[in-house]
Amino acid sequence: MFRHILGHLTEGPVTEPAPEPGIDALAELGLRVRAAAQARLGRSLSIREVDAGSCNGCELEIHALNNPIYDLDRFGLRFVASPRHADVLLVTGPVTRNMEEALRRTWDATPEPKWVIAAGACAIDGGIFAGSYAVTGGVDAVIPVDLRIPGCPPRPVELLEGLLALLEVSGG
């Protein structure tokens, strides 16, 4: 194991260069967030992930953001265990009726200022599950959404672009 670690020290990091922020995502968020965020936040953003009925595909790619290749931490973005510590709710899934209340409560528990990202086709408008008796049809049917990241699931790099866009705007 120590030989392994030594190898990493001499070979340099496996981390890849960061992508350019997503232009579309940036535009969508707009100046509204910038003003509020500048006043309140530094560079560091805390993210609380909420699965509101996803197929778990989106979670796999969100997990990948933490692997050493994407290494979310270096952007000053970290996943936190409680909504009370979060600036951002990163929500996946079509918001099932059975998760509607839990999502609303999580949002209520998140202190202001706060942002909501709808990640994945389902979170944006219910996606393939829209119209079912068991889903509400997307995150903004339940709580206000600031940023949408399309994809099924969004690739890690697309998630990163969205998060970076949010960070650059909110961090000023």
Partner: peptide, 21 residues
């Protein structure tokens, strides 16, 4: 049951290709 999306209900009546998705 929290992530119950009603997949069986959505599949019923759909063309095979859509149900496959």
């Amino acid at each position: 049951g929290y992530v119950h999306k009603g997949i069986e209900g959505l599949m019923a009546g759909r063309p095979v290709a859509e149900a496959a998705r």
